[in-house]
Write a protein that binds this DNA or RNA. Sequence first.
DNA 1: AACTACCAAGCAAGCGCTTGGTTTGTAAAT
DNA 2: ATTTACAAACCAAGCGCTTGCTTGGTAGTT
Lengths: 202, 202
Amino acid sequence: MSKIVKELVASGMITDPESPKGALLAAATTLFRSQGYSRTTVRDIAKVVGIQSGSLFHHFRTKEDILEAVMAETIIVCTEQMKTAVSNTQLTPRKKIQALLECEIGAILGDTGRGLGVLVFEWDSLSNDKRNRVLQLRDIYEGIWLCVLEEAKSEGILVMEPALLRKFLTGALSWIVNWYNPQGDLRVPDLANLAMKMLVRT
Amino acid sequence: MSKIVKELVASGMITDPESPKGALLAAATTLFRSQGYSRTTVRDIAKVVGIQSGSLFHHFRTKEDILEAVMAETIIVCTEQMKTAVSNTQLTPRKKIQALLECEIGAILGDTGRGLGVLVFEWDSLSNDKRNRVLQLRDIYEGIWLCVLEEAKSEGILVMEPALLRKFLTGALSWIVNWYNPQGDLRVPDLANLAMKMLVRT
DNA sequence: AACTACCAAGCAAGCGCTTGGTTTGTAAAT
DNA sequence: ATTTACAAACCAAGCGCTTGCTTGGTAGTT
C-alpha cells in the first residue's frame, strides 16, 4: 500500500483496502468495470468477497452507494497523487504538464485504472445527488490541471486555450484503456511524451 | 431524409427510418443512449413506439439484436458519409483531414450522435459474435482515416504516427459529447479547426 | 454489554421472451 | 367489382427467472 493511500486511510478520507469493506469495494470496482454496473448483481459482488448477498447491506445501504464510494475514493486518491506530482513549485510549466500527464496516464493504466474506468463509463448510472457530490471531487481534480495549464498559457506554449485543451485531453487519455497493450513497447512516459506533442507547440 | 440514407435503404443496407422497424430502432437508440442498454427494458422501447412489449419480438429475435442493429446501421451511415467527404482526390492531405474531422464531429453532434454514443458506451454490452461483426464495419470506417493520415504522414505534417494519432483523436472526439454545449459559440468547423491544431505541425 | 461482521431464508417487483390469436394492408383470382 | 389469399404488424396474457433488498438471528471480539 502506498504512502498516500495510508495517509488517506488514517485521516478517514477513504476505506482501508485491507478491511472487509475495502475488499468489498475492490471487488465491486473490478466487476463494475468488467461487466458494467447494472449487469453486476449484488450476488456477483458477494460471491467474489465470499459472503452472502444480503450481508453486503451491512456495509452499504444500497448498491448505488457502493458505486458512489468506488468513484469518490478513486478520485480522492488520484487527486492526492496529482497534488504531490506538481508540489515542486520550481518546475517549469512544461515539466509540470509532463508530470501531470505521467501521473494521470499512470493512474489510468495502474491500480486506480479500474476505478477511473468506472468513473467514465458508469457516470450516468449515478443518481443526481450522488453524481453532484462526486462532481465536486472531480472539480478539485480538474482544478489542478487548469492551474498548471494557465501557467503554460502565460508562456505561450499551448496550442489552444487551457479549458478546451483539457477537454480534448481528457477524452484522448480516457480512451487509452480501449487500445493500450501492456505487452507492447509503449510505457507510461512514452505515452506522456506523445500526448505532450499534441498539447504544446514545438 | 438525406440522399445517402435513401440510397442505403434502397440497397437494403439499413432499415427504412419511416418503417415501423425503423421507428423502433430510433426509439431504442435514444433510450440506449440516455439510460444505458441494460437499464432500458423492452417495455420502455415498446412504450415509446406505442406497441406492446411482446410485439417487439416480431421485428427482432432478442433485445441484443436491437443493439447490434443500432450500432451496425450507425456505422454504415457514417462510413458512407466519410467516403463522400474524401471522394475528391484532388484535395491536399490537410484538406482531407479537415473534411474528415468536420464529418466525424458533425456525426457526433448530429443525427447519428446518439448511435455513435451507443457504440462507445455500450460496446461491452454486445456478445462476442455480434461485436466481431460490428468490429468489421468499424475497421472499414477506420481504414478511411488511416488512409488519409498516411498521405499526410508522407508530407511530414503530422505530430506523430498515424495509428497512434488516430487513437488519441478517437478519444478526444468521442469525449466531445460530454462537454459540448449547443448554446455556446463553438460550431462544428470551429471544433474541427481546434482538433487540427493538435494533429499537425504549425 | 455492545459492536462488527455475517448467515439463512425469502419477499415483491421487474425482467426478457413466448404463446395463440386478431387486425390490417395489399394484391392476385374470380 | 368482389372475393380470396396471405403476410406483416400487433395484442393480451403470462411463464420462469433474476433482481435489490429485508428480516431475524448468530458468532466472535472488545
